[in-house]
């Protein structure tokens, strides 16, 4: 099977396209997904191929996008509802948290809610404070929903397909900065080959093996961690990079296994530092791996500030590979 470098946006498009072909209950809805061809071009060509019934432009109504998807899923469809950016998903927080995530529980299993919320996420590009969030941990706070955050084309492809087929609600966060990034994706043409690429819900992945420190990350944090690992290798430090891929469920077994080997950990995330991914992983490590801990757990996250417009101070707020290198050097 040929393996080609594919942009993450194209991998997501391919996954969505295949799942729509595979299951007539799958449809997409969201702002500009149809005639505009998708704000991020993920649904390019979908309207022509699947028609208005299955490719549904919505008004700018995030509360309704969030809630209509819940009702349609309860009734037996498999909506893939797009929030143009995850910033706008805040408007739908009630639909996501109180309905998508809880309907199954408060009716004690009477209904399933097989939906996927796709949302473009992330900081940068001078988008300014209200358009600059990577708030995945907020959504992962709530039981009843899964949260997926791919770091590359292959994972995005396999994770989204799994998410669409799963009978639980999934918030699928796609880092805008990673959309154009090419990475290898096999040209799987038949269904069996495609199924081989499925990524199970809650399964993390070791992106680089190492012995001296564990870097735990997701989405863009994986790139910063891998860049940092290459820089550290020049100084003789071998970092292991754990890409958790899903913020809920959290594959802590993978983190523990790595930590038992390295005894040191730096957690890398694009999001804000308070009550964060980093806080959670650090708390779990100290609770469960205390005997293996040779140094304080370090965290690299965004600065605790709303993001400004001006480029230089904007970049100052963001995590990067150098900040990861510096954190590692404090504990190795």
């Amino acid at each position: 099977m040929a393996v080609r470098n594919v942009a993450m946006r194209e991998a997501i498009r391919r996954a969505l396209h295949e799942e729509m072909l595979r299951d007539e209950a799958v449809f997409v809805m969201g702002e500009e997904v149809a005639y505009w061809q998708g704000t991020h071009r993920v649904t390019r060509g979908f309207l022509e191929e699947f028609g208005e019934r299955r490719v549904r432009d919505t008004p700018i109504s995030e509360m309704a996008i969030g809630g209509v998807a819940v009702g349609a899923a309860m009734a037996g469809l498999r909506p893939v509802a797009e929030f143009m950016t995850i910033n706008f998903a805040f408007l739908a927080l009630d639909a996501i948290v109180n309905h998508a995530a809880k309907v199954r529980y408060f009716f004690d299993g009477m209904f399933k809610v097989p939906l996927v919320y796709r949302a473009a996420s992330g900081w940068g590009n001078q988008a300014t404070a209200s358009h600059s969030h990577a708030p995945e941990p907020i959504f992962a706070h709530f039981p009843g929903i899964y949260v997926g955050c791919p770091s590359n084309a292959l994972d995005a492809y396999g994770m989204l397909k799994t998410a669409i087929r799963d009978d639980n609600p999934v918030l699928f966060s796609e880092s805008i900065a990673l959309y154009p990034k090419p990475s290898p994706l096999p040209d799987a043409s038949d269904e069996a080959a495609q199924d081989d690429l499925l990524v199970p819900i809650g399964k993390g992945d070791i992106k680089r093996a190492g012995t001296d420190v564990t870097l735990v990350a997701y989405a863009r944090g994986v790139d910063w961690s891998l860049q940092a690992a290459r820089a550290l290798a020049r100084d003789g430090i071998e970092a292991e990079v754990v890409d958790l891929r899903w913020l809920r469920p959290l594959d802590m077994a993978l983190v523990y296994k790595s930590f038992k080997k390295t005894n040191r950990c730096v957690i890398v995330e694009e999001s804000l530092p308070m009550y964060s991914f980093g806080s959670e992983i650090a708390a779990l490590l100290q609770e469960n791996m205390f005997d293996y801990m040779d140094a304080p757990i370090k965290r690299v996250a965004a600065e605790d500030v709303p993001l400004p417009y001006s480029k230089e101070i904007e970049l100052l707020a963001l995590p990067n590979a150098q900040k990861v290198v510096d954190a590692v050097k404090e504990i190795v």
């Binding site: 509360m63 969030g66 809630g67 009702g71 349609a72 309905h99």
Partner: peptide, 17 residues
Amino acid sequence: YAIVGGHLPLAAGIALE
């Protein structure tokens, strides 16, 4: 449903099916 108005988009979703 317990959140005022929270069930209204669900109704639309059920009707959409």
